[in-house]
């Protein structure tokens, strides 16, 4: 079964072609070097216009690399939320056009659930499991009860974890992407050099707040002034605080729900210290912690196809007039 997976929820235009849920035939993401070459080197930054310019070329590239033609596609899957509406609409409209012209079923996929399911492209995981989806735009803990059945336990109330990394690296002017730069510099620093707060770590819920941590960092600079030589210590301590909160709250969710497995997804799941701490503390608590490979952590079309595949197996198909939505609603 040939599945097309499309994601245009944020900056990247991503399209993958899968055969079934775990055979990846092609996987194109607009930030990849080859795509830059494909468009003469200049790819416009952000905004829906970029997706519009790229999506046709990326679709053709994905089919070509997969060695399939339009007619071979059996199922079209596409992220329809959450994300920037203007960007989502490019992917969604493109997918609808394909579905209509090829007379194939279409399935709208939730971007967060897709991150929580991306692991299936590499290995099977038994349900139930706790998923932590942590990226530049999201920090969500959810219970994955079964295929197509999940409940959100908590989310950030202000900044996402990846956003905290990016904003601090931009503030210190140490380079991009923030998460990677901080991880590298933090390796040379002492994790307990500065006692940054662990926001909401003891509160009886599964929500996060990283905005106050960012402010603590800024206040440290205002109070003492950040000296060049102490940046590794500061970053190691800052990263430790973020990882500590993420790991503690996710493990608490697993223990309280009496669930033995944790799957971590999203861009921040590529962070080495987060992986290390999860394996260590997960082990102490008798929990199995599973990370997808780095390739599946960032936004991609594979996870959309994987998630859509299982919905299709359960008999779901989306109406052709489905809408894009900007955010997940947690209450009422």
């Amino acid at each position: 079964m040939i599945i097309l997976g499309i994601d245009t929820s944020c900056d990247d235009t991503s399209i993958a072609v899968l055969d079934g849920y775990n055979r990846v035939l092609s996987d194109i993401v607009s930030s990849q070097v080859e795509v830059h070459a494909l468009f003469g080197g200049v790819v416009p930054e952000i905004a829906s216009r970029k997706h519009l310019e790229l999506i046709g070329g990326i679709y053709r590239e994905a089919l070509q690399k997969a060695g399939v033609s339009d007619r071979d596609i059996d199922l079209i899957t596409v992220t329809n939320g959450p994300g920037l509406i203007g960007s989502l609409l490019i992917g969604l409209s493109f997918a609808k056009g394909l579905a209509l012209s090829l007379s194939k079923p279409i399935i709208g996929v939730n971007h967060i659930e897709a991150h929580a399911m991306s692991i299936f492209a590499e290995r099977y995981v038994d349900f139930p499991y706790i998923a932590l989806v942590v990226s530049g735009g999201h920090t969500v803990i959810m219970v994955m009860e079964d295929f197509c059945r999940s409940t959100i336990l908590g989310t950030t109330r202000d900044d996402a974890a990846g956003e905290a990394f990016d904003k601090i690296s931009k503030y210190l002017n140490i380079g991009y992407p923030g998460g990677k730069v901080i991880e590298d510099m933090a390796k040379k620093g002492k994790r307990d050099a500065i006692a940054f707060p662990r926001p909401m770590i003891t509160e009886d819920n599964y929500d996060f707040s990283f905005s106050g941590l960012k402010t603590s960092f800024l206040n440290y600079d205002r109070r003492y002034g950040v000296k060049e030589e102490e940046i590794p210590d500061l970053l190691a301590s800052f990263q430790e605080s973020i990882c500590d909160v993420l790991v503690s709250k996710t493990i608490k969710a697993a223990k309280r729900s009496n669930i033995k497995r944790i799957v971590v997804g999203g861009g921040v799941a590529a962070n080495g210290r987060l992986r290390e701490m999860f394996f260590e503390k997960g082990g102490e608590n008798g929990l199995e912690v599973i990370f997808p490979s780095h390739r599946l952590c960032g936004d991609n079309g594979i996870m959309v196809a994987v998630t859509g595949y299982f919905y299709f197996q359960k008999g779901f198909v989306s109406p052709i007039d489905m809408k894009a939505y900007s955010r997940i609603t947690l209450t009422g």
């Binding site: 944020c10 952000i46 990226s135 735009g137 989310t155 109330r157 202000d158 904003k167 905005s211 209450t331």
Partner: peptide, 27 residues
């Protein structure tokens, strides 16, 4: 973002507590 959270409460957004930073989403 904290100020916008309060503004959301003021205009009657039910889940104003989950007004989050739009830096990545842009909107």
């Amino acid at each position: 973002t904290q100020l916008v959270k309060g503004m959301a409460k003021g205009i009657g957004v039910k889940d104003w507590f989950y007004v989050t930073s739009p830096t990545f989403a842009i909107m």
